[in-house]
């Protein structure tokens, strides 16, 4: 039996999908962590991106920070936080939030900054307040780039959240870490396939959402 047959066998084994430690449970954990991380990252990155994009102030700082954040090794960060904050949910969440902030911030900031200055000038001249300009003009027009950032962040988080298994949490990373420990390679291949599928499905769903939300005149 080659590795693919063995992986197939793993997928079709009794109890592989349901029950404690089954695929359904691991996928749910995986998505749960990912959603929580993206939510926290969005709460931090979106307001900053909106303000910087709208006012044009702090652009250099944003560019420098997003560049630096992208360069940080997540596994190293996770280890550091785990040593510092102890085991549990806080350390991995913090490490991955930092990972997700960079693409979100870049997407929101560049989306708002890329809105045609003439359109913004016209909106202001018609008598829109700054917050109306942001909500009714810049945000709808920036949606494609903002969604680019969200999808980018979601892909990265779903792929990387596997590392939380490293410090005894759940998710699909469990199969990787546990599989490696007992040299169960089919289980590891299965984990990789599941993570990739999950990332693709989530990206497709976000693409549909983006299409539904993008204003017609700008498509």
């Amino acid at each position: 039996m080659n590795i693919f047959d063995k992986t197939w066998a793993w997928f079709t084994a009794d109890g592989a999908w349901t029950g404690a430690g089954g695929i359904f449970q691991r996928v749910a954990e995986h998505l749960g962590y990912s959603a929580l991380i993206l939510l926290i990252a969005a709460v931090i990155a979106v307001p900053i991106g909106l303000m910087v994009g709208h006012t044009g102030r702090g652009e250099n700082v944003v560019v420098a920070i997003t560049g630096a954040l992208r360069a940080l090794p997540t596994l190293g960060l996770l280890t550091l936080f785990a040593l510092w904050l102890g085991l549990g949910l806080v350390a991995p969440i913090a490490a991955l939030v930092i990972l997700a902030i960079a693409p979100l911030l870049a997407g929101v900031y560049s989306g708002i900054a890329a809105v045609d200055k003439v359109t913004v000038d016209a909106a202001r001249a018609q008598g829109m307040t700054e917050s109306q300009i942001l909500r009714k003009v810049e945000l709808p027009l920036a949606l494609p780039l903002i969604f680019g950032g969200i999808r980018n962040a979601a892909l990265q988080v779903i792929a990387t959240v596997t590392v939380v298994a490293y410090i005894n949490l759940g998710g699909l990373g469990r199969y990787l870490i546990d599989g490696l420990a007992v040299r169960d390679y089919p289980r590891m291949v299965a984990a990789v396939v599941l993570v990739a599928l999950l990332a693709l499905i989530v990206d497709a769903l976000l693409a549909l959402l983006q299409r539904a939300l993008t204003p017609r005149g700008t498509r």
């Binding site: 003439v118 016209a122 001249a125 008598g127 709808p140 017609r216 700008t218």
Partner: peptide, 22 residues
């Protein structure tokens, strides 16, 4: 300023219409 601006019409060189609105 925004109240003042609403009280007078303004036409720009490049129309400046909002592309996402009819």
């Amino acid at each position: 300023p925004h109240k003042l601006r609403r009280s007078m019409g303004y036409v720009l060189q490049q129309a400046g219409l909002m592309p996402h609105r009819t």
